[in-house]
Amino acid sequence: MWMLGQFNTRRTRRTRRTRRGDRALTCPLLRRAVAAAVLLIGSSMMVWGSVAMAAEPESESPPALAFVETQLGVSREGYFTLEWSAVEGAALYRVRDRADQIAYQGVATKSFQSGLSDGVYRFYVEAIGDDGEILATSAEAVATVEHWRLAPSLALFAIGAIVVGGIGFVILRGRWIEKQIATGGDDRTSMLQTEVESGGES
């Protein structure tokens, strides 16, 4: 099952394009609906289209250690990716939060933070040399976590349960009627046949 592949990238894209995203939020709903409809019609081109959308120009690393984005915007799901420039000679990087707790330590120039409660989070990153010395320290990056409200989330949860229950009901009912038809059934069979009918071989 591949379906969840988009999650990380979606988050990253959203944080990277915060400004664009903010502007997009002001767009009317209709405009988005039209965009979605266009996407459907042109779905044969979506493969290429979505690949093209994913293309992001590689920026050259500035010499100093700095976060790619210092204002990460608001995360509604409690996770986001911090990304910073590479520093020549750095053996590893260490991300610390405002309380100086280590939030990440590793060789990559990205750190994935998740599971955070509502609040404002500030991070800075240190580049560590081979001998453990700190080569550079970045300025702060700020991320805000503000989870979706519980009531609409539970409402969607309930809608999901109803839809899944409905699908289950239709399938089980259909299977039951099929069985009735296959075994000769009771008096209801003829009535039920108008609704569901088995294949020629049942």
């Binding site: 379906m3 988009q6 990238t9 493969v47 979505s50 293309a55």
Partner: peptide
Amino acid sequence: IGTLATVLFFA
């Protein structure tokens, strides 16, 4: 191009 499975957005 793109990160893993970015192409799966609309499925």
